[in-house]
Amino acid sequence: MSSALLVLLVAVNPVAIAAELGGRQDRRVLAVGLAATAVLSVALAAASEVILDVLSVTAPTFRVAAGAVLLLAAARWVALGPRRLAPEDALLSHTDRSDPSPWSGLVVPLLVPVLVSPQLVMAAVSVGADDGVVAVAVGAGAALALSGVACVLHRGSAGIWSTAVRFTGLPVAAVAVGLVVDGVKAV
């Protein structure tokens, strides 16, 4: 269970989310986005067996793939830092005069690509198949709640956050490698 929580925490990476969103987002929109992501994660976990059946793969095989995707995300964080959203996509702030509705940024870019990431989708399915829906609900819920807190408390320069994200990439990579090894070794 603890390893499942860790996998979901690093797949979400609250530091990266806070760095990408920059603390300028509308809190109501952010809350809805985080809740929607949590619900989606739980739904993926609940459907994990069906997904594996449709793909004709077993849980260990999916675990290896999830680890590889997570490793790519870790490499991107280490090499490039947080994703820089284009100004026209940063429709998250209610102070943005060009669009009076903060909700217009809910799907893009808040949900996609910031919150609902490939590594989170893979982790939710993999952990759901291995440890069940409850583990995903607890893990994703906690990680997304931490992300919300990090976004609200976001202060300081972008450079500091970028450095912090690069550092988080290292433990993410370690967890990803562990996931791959665990999948490779499984019966």
Partner: peptide, 8 residues
């Protein structure tokens, strides 16, 4: 799909 996640 063509590599790690190829169907078993």
């Amino acid at each position: 799909r063509l590599s790690l996640l190829a169907p078993e």
